[in-house]
C-alpha cells in the first residue's frame, strides 16, 4: 500500500448567462493514504472559458492574489534574512582580520 497523489485539471458544467457561456476549470489535488486510512483533496479554480454571443472564445485565468502576496511576503522575508546573515558573516571576517 503506497500513497497515491493525483493532480488533474477538470472542467465543470458550462454555465449559460444570457448569451454568454462560461465553462469553469479547476485543479484537483488528491492524496490517498491507505496506510493511515485517510486522505485529502484540494481543489482550486484555475480559469474560465468564456464564449460570448459572437462565438468568440477567451480563457480568463482565475488568479489567487492573496496566495501570491503571501508567497511574496514569505520569500522576501527569507531573502532579507539570508542577506543579513551573509552581511553579518562578511563583517565578522573583516573584524577578525
Amino acid at each position: 500500500m503506497s500513497s497515491r497523489l493525483q493532480i488533474e485539471n477538470r472542467a465543470g458544467k458550462p454555465i449559460v448567462i444570457g448569451k454568454n457561456r462560461i465553462t469553469p476549470f479547476y485543479q484537483s489535488v488528491g492524496l490517498n493514504m491507505p496506510q493511515i486510512n485517510g486522505g485529502m483533496v484540494w481543489n482550486r479554480p484555475v480559469s474560465v472559458l468564456a464564449v460570448n454571443s459572437d462565438g468568440e472564445e477567451s480563457v480568463i485565468p482565475v488568479v489567487d492574489v492573496t496566495r501570491r502576496i503571501q508567497i511574496a511576503i514569505f520569500s522576501s522575508g527569507l531573502f532579507i534574512l539570508m542577506l543579513t546573515w551573509l552581511l553579518s558573516r562578511v563583517l565578522q571576517r573583516e573584524r577578525s582580520e
Binding site: G12, I17, P24, M40, V41, N43, R44, P45, D64
Partner: peptide, 27 residues
C-alpha cells in the same frame, strides 16, 4: 466543482459567480 464555483448570483444585468479554493482531509 460545485464548491469551487458557486451558484450564479443575479443582480440586474450583472451575474456573479463566486469561486473558492476548497480543502478537505479526513482519516
Amino acid at each position: 466543482v460545485e464548491a469551487v464555483y458557486g451558484k450564479p448570483i443575479k443582480s440586474g444585468d450583472v451575474t456573479i459567480i463566486p469561486t473558492a479554493e476548497v480543502f478537505c482531509g479526513m482519516g
